[in-house]
Design a protein around this nucleic acid. Structure first.
Length: 513
RNA sequence: GGCCGAUUCGUCUAACGGUUAGGACGACAGAUUCUCAAUCUGUAAAUAGGAGUUCGAUUCUCCUAUCGGCUGCCA
C-alpha cells in the first residue's frame, strides 16, 4: 500500500466557477503528485444534474491551465481510465450499487420526497433532527421492511427507488488522516446516505467517488475539510466493497475563510470586499451577474499560485517566494495547517507586486500592449518594455502600469492642479527656462549624464534642486510623481523633452510669485 | 440541537516540554531620494479561559468558551 504509485485527483463539480479554495486544493494535489513523480488526474464530478452549470467545466480547465496545473489524465487529455466525466460512467455505478444491495450493505428505499419532507418537519416540530437510520429504515418502505416479492413488484412496475447505505447501528470507525491524525467516529450518529438516486439515475458523490477512486487507483485523496464528516461512510464503503486494503490515504485540507466576519469564503465576498474570489472572470451564460477574476485584475499566475500555496501550508523556513518548481520540491502534507485560513487581500497584493517587480518588461509588455492600444496609444514592444522597466516598481498589478506608461508615450493634455499650485511658481518657471537651455545644449539626453550635468549646474547656481525637478516633472508628464525625471527625459528623448517643456510654458504661463 | 474539527500578534504563520515566543503582510516611525513608489532600518502587536501532568508547559490530558464544517435523491 505504501509502495503504490502516487496517483491523486482533483475532482470538481461543474456547478459554477471554481473558487480559490478549489484552486488551492488542485494546487496541493498537483504539487504532491509532481513531488512524488506520480500522476495528477482531473475528474469531473457532474452527478448533480440539477445544479449543472453550462460553461463551468470549461472554466475549470482554463483556470487550471492559467495556474500552470497540467493534468496527466483527465477529461481533456484522456487516459487509461477514461471516461473521466462521471456522467459518462453511469452504468459502472449502477453495477456497484447493486452489488452492495446483493451483499447486504445497502438496500432499496421507495420513500417519496414528500414523505421525507413530512418526517423532517415532524422531527423539527419536536425539536429534533430527522435521521434516516437504523431506527426508521425498517418502518419505512424499504427492501428491509417489505417482503422480497413486493420489492421486486415495485421495481418491475417502475416505482421510483433509491439505494441507501445500511449504516451499522453502533460501531466505532477508526480513521487516519495525513493532516489530522487519528480520528474515531461512532456510526450511531450517522444516517443511511443515498448512494444511488432515482431522480436522474446517477450515483451520489459518495458512491461515485469511492468507485472511481478505486478504479482509477487513486493513492491519496487530498480534499477540503468539508468532507471530513463523510469520511466514516467512505471508510465503510471501501470495506463493503472489499477494497479496504487498497483504499487511498486521506488528507483533509483546512478551509479558506472570509477576510472579515464569519464563515468560509463564498462567491459573494469578492464584490463586497473588493477582491476576486475566482481565478478568472466568470461570465454566466444566463446573463446573471459577472464575477471578477485574478487574471483580469492583473495578477500574474505565478504570484497567484505562490500566494495560494502559502495559505494553509508553510515550508518551515522563512522563504516566501516560490517558483512552481520550488513549491514542488518543498511541499509537504506534514506542514499543512489544521485551522482554517483567512484570506488576505493585502498579502495577495504584496505577492503580486513582488512578482511584477521581478518580471522583465518584455514579458509585461505583452500583456500591456493590447491595453495601450485600447486607449489609443501605439508603441513598439521594445519601447513599451523599456517604459515598463522604468515604472514597474511603482505598480502592484498589471493595469497599474497603464496610466504610468501612457504618460511616457503621450504628452500631458492637462497638468495636475495640486502639483501646479505647488511648483509652478515664477522663480521655478524662470529656473526651468534656464534648465531648458542647459538640456538643449547637450548633444543628447542620457539619464546618468544628464543627471550629473544638471546636478552640477544646480549646485553651481545654488538653485533649489527639489523644486526645480518637480517643476520639470510637472512640465514633462503633467504630475509630480513617477520615476526618475532623468530616466523619463532620456526615454522620450531630447526633442520631445524640449517640446513638452515648451508646451507647459505656453499652457501654464509664467506662474505666480 | 447532534456529530466532527479547530484555536499563537489585526491577518498568514514558526517554535520535534526548556527561546528575550521568531518571520511575513498590514500599521506606525526613521533613512534614502528630484516626487510618488520601491528599498533599507526600527517600533507596537499574540500563546482564548480554567484545571491538571511535569523540575518546567504554546507544546500533553480534561473542562469551558469561541469559531468552523457537516447534519439533502448537493458536491
Amino acid at each position: 500500500m505504501n509502495n503504490r504509485r502516487v496517483r491523486v485527483r482533483f475532482a470538481p463539480s461543474p456547478t459554477g466557477p471554481l473558487h480559490i479554495g478549489g484552486v488551492r486544493t488542485a494546487l496541493y494535489n498537483y504539487l504532491f503528485a509532481r513531488q512524488h513523480g506520480g500522476d495528477f488526474i482531473v475528474r469531473i464530478e457532474d452527478t448533480d444534474s440539477q445544479r449543472f452549470v453550462p460553461g463551468a467545466e470549461q472554466y475549470i480547465f482554463e483556470a487550471l491551465r492559467w495556474c500552470g496545473l497540467r493534468a496527466d489524465e483527465g477529461v481533456e487529455q484522456g487516459g487509461p481510465h477514461a471516461p473521466y466525466r462521471q456522467s459518462e460512467r453511469r452504468e459502472i455505478y449502477l453495477r456497484y450499487a447493486l452489488q452492495l444491495v446483493e451483499s447486504g450493505y445497502a438496500y432499496y428505499a421507495f420513500d417519496s420526497a414528500q414523505t421525507l419532507n413530512g418526517l423532517r418537519q415532524q422531527a423539527e416540530a419536536r425539536g429534533e433532527a430527522f435521521a434516516y437510520n437504523y431506527q426508521v429504515r425498517t418502518q419505512l418502505e424499504t427492501s428491509l421492511s417489505l417482503p422480497p416479492s413486493e420489492v421486486q413488484a415495485r421495481i418491475d412496475r417502475g416505482d421510483a427507488w433509491v439505494i441507501r447505505f445500511k449504516m451499522p447501528e453502533n460501531e466505532t470507525v477508526e480513521m487516519d488522516d495525513l493532516i489530522r491524525g487519528h480520528i474515531a467516529a461512532n456510526t450511531a450518529a450517522l444516517d443511511d446516505k443515498v448512494l444511488y438516486k432515482s431522480a436522474d439515475g446517477l450515483p451520489t458523490y459518495h458512491l461515485a467517488n469511492i468507485v472511481d477512486d478505486h478504479l482509477m487507483q487513486i493513492s491519496h485523496v487530498i480534499r477540503g475539510e468539508e468532507w471530513l464528516p463523510s469520511l466514516p461512510l467512505h471508510y465503510l464503503l471501501y470495506r463493503a466493497f472489499g477494497w479496504a486494503d487498497t483504499q487511498p490515504q486521506f488528507a483533509h485540507l483546512p478551509l479558506l475563510l472570509k477576510p472579515q466576519g464569519q464563515g468560509k469564503l463564498s462567491k459573494r465576498d469578492g464584490d463586497k470586499m473588493g477582491f476576486p474570489v475566482f481565478p478568472l472572470r466568470w461570465c454566466p451564460a444566463d446573463g446573471a451577474e459577472e464575477a471578477r477574476g485574478y487574471r483580469e485584475d492583473g495578477y500574474l499566475p505565478e504570484a497567484f499560485v505562490n500566494m495560494l500555496a502559502l495559505l494553509g501550508w508553510n515550508p518551515g523556513t522563512e522563504q516566501e517566494l516560490f517558483s512552481m518548481d520550488e513549491l514542488v520540491a518543498a511541499f509537504s502534507l506534514d506542514r499543512v495547517g489544521k485551522a482554517g485560513a483567512r484570506f488576505s487581500p493585502d498579502k495577495a497584493r504584496w505577492f503580486n507586486a513582488q512578482y511584477l517587480h521581478r518580471c522583465p518588461g518584455q514579458q509585461l509588455a505583452q500583456a500591456l500592449l493590447p491595453m495601450l492600444q485600447g486607449i489609443g496609444v501605439s508603441a513598439s514592444p521594445d519601447r513599451a518594455a523599456q517604459a515598463i522597466d522604468l515604472i514597474k516598481e511603482r505598480a502592484s498589478f498589471v493595469p497599474d502600469l497603464l496610466p504610468l506608461t501612457e504618460r511616457m508615450f503621450v504628452p500631458p493634455v492637462s497638468y495636475d492642479q495640486k502639483s501646479a499650485d505647488k511648483f509652478w511658481k515664477s522663480d521655478n518657471v524662470s529656473n526651468l527656462r534656464a534648465l531648458r537651455a542647459q538640456l538643449e545644449a547637450m548633444p543628447e539626453l542620457r539619464a546618468t549624464e544628464a543627471e550629473a550635468h544638471v546636478q552640477q549646474w544646480v549646485r553651481d547656481n545654488q538653485l533649489p534642486m527639489g523644486a526645480l525637478m518637480n517643476t520639470l516633472r510637472l512640465a514633462v508628464i503633467g504630475v509630480s510623481q513617477g520615476p526618475s525625471i532623468f530616466g523619463i527625459c532620456a526615454f522620450i528623448g531630447k526633442e520631445e523633452t524640449l517640446r513638452r517643456i515648451d508646451a507647459a510654458l505656453s499652457t501654464l504661463g509664467d506662474g505666480r510669485g
